[in-house]
């Protein structure tokens, strides 16, 4: 088997292993930590009977290992269990919320990724000049404010004072795409701002790293134009690091979604998760946590796979 294929298989296997371990960790984290789950759901004043009831309902009387395998088996078949608080099937409540969350994240990515790469290139082109300095100052400012506050700042100035966009992002299936986009304008703006800063910074660093290589100097000394140098020499070597940057930031975006959804009361998975953390609805938290972690792991895995595929040493072995 060629080396790069072997590395690919290894990386994918590692990703799957990681998913399995993460599922264990989440299960373990919610079941074996000090503090009785039943107690923390019902509070200190719960009666012993109520505690016993809820323990039975949660299956807490069975051994942890068999509970884990039951849970995992259910997961594989798409059965995420039932919510303690509402008694509803988690998978069906999650379905539409996951769709909404992905909708939000998708539009944020569509705007943020090209913009970040463009601004990163701009910062490299005008390195140490005012566009670069402005970009890094804005970056510093935007990573110094938590996501939810960026949300409220935009809501206050753009939504309330200017009245350009709705302050609450309610969407449902009856809306047209245009109406939906109008509804999510502010959360998309917030998410874009949040990942833009990181992505731009990392893109800038990745391209600068390539531009400082000796082969770029060789290309300059060949009398090539700047465009040819970037297109033929810098770009083929920048793809892997840039894809890496994009993937890492998409993973970051998925987390940012949680907070932003709460700010704009958007009916997505993040809000669902936070709601049920406060209600201590463990099965929902487990399911949502695992889905978020899985997205994060898969995106990181894709980043690594692209790096392997783009490495000429691995693609063309000696």
């Amino acid at each position: 088997m060629p080396l790069f294929l072997k590395l690919l298989v290894q990386r994918i296997a590692l990703g799957l292993l990681l998913l399995l371990l993460v599922s264990m960790l989440i299960f373990w984290g919610t079941n074996i930590l000090p503090g009785d789950v039943a107690q923390s759901i019902l509070g200190q004043s719960a009666t012993p009977e109520a505690l016993a009831n809820i323990r039975a309902e949660l299956g807490l009387n069975e051994p942890a290992l068999s509970r884990y395998f039951d849970w995992l088996g259910g997961l594989v078949q798409g059965d995420l269990g039932t919510a303690l608080t509402s008694g509803k099937d988690i998978a069906s409540s999650l379905g539409s919320r996951l769709k909404n969350t992905l909708f939000l994240a998708f539009w944020a990515a569509v705007i943020a990724v090209p913009l970040a790469i463009f601004l990163g290139l701009l910062a490299v082109r005008y390195r140490e000049r005012w566009p670069d300095k402005l970009i890094s100052a804005v970056t510093l400012a935007s990573i110094s404010v938590p996501e939810f506050l960026i949300g409220y700042i935009l809501m206050y100035f753009v939504g309330v004072k200017l009245g350009w966009a709705p302050t609450v992002s309610m969407i449902h299936d009856g809306l047209s795409l245009g109406q939906k986009l109008n509804a999510i304008a502010l959360p998309v703006a917030v998410l874009t701002m949040v990942v833009l800063a990181h992505m731009m910074r990392m893109t800038r660093a990745a391209i600068l790293n390539v531009m400082q290589s000796a082969y770029i100097e060789t290309a300059e000394l060949k009398g090539l134009t700047m465009f040819t140098i970037i297109w033929r020499h810098a770009l083929p070597n920048s793809i892997a690091p840039i894809v890496n940057v994009v993937m890492i930031n998409l993973a970051y975006l998925v987390v940012g979604v949680v907070v932003v959804e709460v700010v704009f009361t958007y009916p997505g998975m993040g809000q669902y998760l936070v709601d049920h953390v406060s209600k201590r609805d463990v099965p929902v938290v487990q399911a949502c946590g695992l889905i978020f972690a899985a997205v994060y792991i898969v995106l990181n895995m894709v980043a690594d796979i692209v790096s392997i595929l783009a490495n000429p040493r691995l693609r063309h072995p000696k």
Binding site: G29, V255, V285, Q286, G289, Y296, N300
Partner: peptide, 11 residues
């Protein structure tokens, strides 16, 4: 491999 915020929420 688990986002910090998600991990914290779970715990």
């Amino acid at each position: 491999s688990i986002p910090t915020l998600i991990f914290a929420l779970v715990v």
